[in-house]
Simulated scan of single mutants.
Amino acid sequence: MKFAVIVFPGSNCDSDMYHAIKDELGEEAEFVWHTEDSLDGYDGILLPGGFSYGDYLRSGAIARFSNVTSEVIKAAEAGKPVLGVCNGFQVLLEAGLLPGAMRRNKDLKFICRPANLKVENNETMFTNAYEQGEVISVPIAHGEGNYYCDEKTLEELKQNNQIVFSYHGENPNGSLEDIAGITNKSGNVLGMMPHPERAVDSLLGSADGLKLFQSIVKSWRGSHVVTA
């Protein structure tokens, strides 16, 4: 499986994402600059964290209009797995691929520390390697991770089982309903504030994030079985 790691001006977690895929997962990965106008050669799309375009206007607002984001939208509509982490999640929200918006953390401070997450739905292409209700440790590092949506959208997220990860034990940023990660209705686009790419080896303090990437590969290979 071949992954595209999207790089915007201001991205700073792209190397972490590349390492997670190339060295820990053992799959192909390439950096793709924001000016590129095709993602046809990739099986999965990864939008890493950072501060795209300096977070001017608001997080992800300018990156939403880059050339490559138009291609990310096309890839999502084609059913390819698309993962947005932290700033990548914010870009997906701005692009309309996921519902809702991000606000400043409740204490108005940048937070960088491990967080406990609960797997709310293990039947997605991103979570099939986890147990339902499993509690995992994944780092967070953000200033605007306070997820918000209106009541109608929240009800739809619940009805469609789109809430994939929630904060467990402590809500670090004030996110509505402790939401840490959601998918689109089709289940092929995931946005999450915690950084699974920083939890792929026990030397990093946790290897719980590796299962997320393993889940993507497992799902992709299951849908690309070659028969004689």
Rank of each mutant, 00 (worst) to 15 (best):
P172F: 02
V164Y: 04
G60A: 08
F31M: 14
T153F: 02
G26S: 12
N12V: 09
K74Y: 00
A95S: 15
T227C: 08
G84E: 05
S206K: 09
I45D: 00
P114L: 12
V82S: 01
C86N: 06
V189G: 00
E28G: 13
M1A: 15
I136N: 07
L203K: 15
D14T: 02
E24N: 13
Y53K: 08
Y147F: 15
G41D: 15
G205S: 11
V7C: 12
N67Y: 09
E131P: 00
N12M: 04
G96K: 07
G181P: 06
L154K: 10
K109H: 13
T153K: 05
A4Q: 05
N160V: 00
D150C: 05
N105P: 07
P196Q: 06
E134G: 04
A75M: 02
A207K: 15
I182F: 00
D201C: 10
E170P: 00
I140Y: 08
S137Q: 14
L98I: 02
E170N: 09
K80L: 10
G181I: 04
F31Y: 15
T69C: 04
F213G: 06
E28R: 14
L212H: 07
L154N: 02
Y53F: 15
S59T: 14
L154V: 01
N67Q: 12
G10R: 11
L98H: 00
Y130F: 14
V32G: 06
S137I: 11
N128R: 14
M193S: 01
H19N: 15
V189R: 00
L157F: 04
K22V: 13
M1K: 12
P114E: 10
V85P: 03
W33M: 13
G54E: 09
P9M: 12
P81Q: 11
W33V: 08
G100Y: 02
A180Y: 04
A101F: 08
L97E: 03
P194V: 09
H195R: 05
A207N: 14
T69L: 13
V200D: 04
Y130G: 03
V91W: 01
G84P: 03
K74A: 06
V226E: 15
A101K: 13
L25Q: 09
E71G: 03
L46T: 01
I182E: 00
S38P: 04
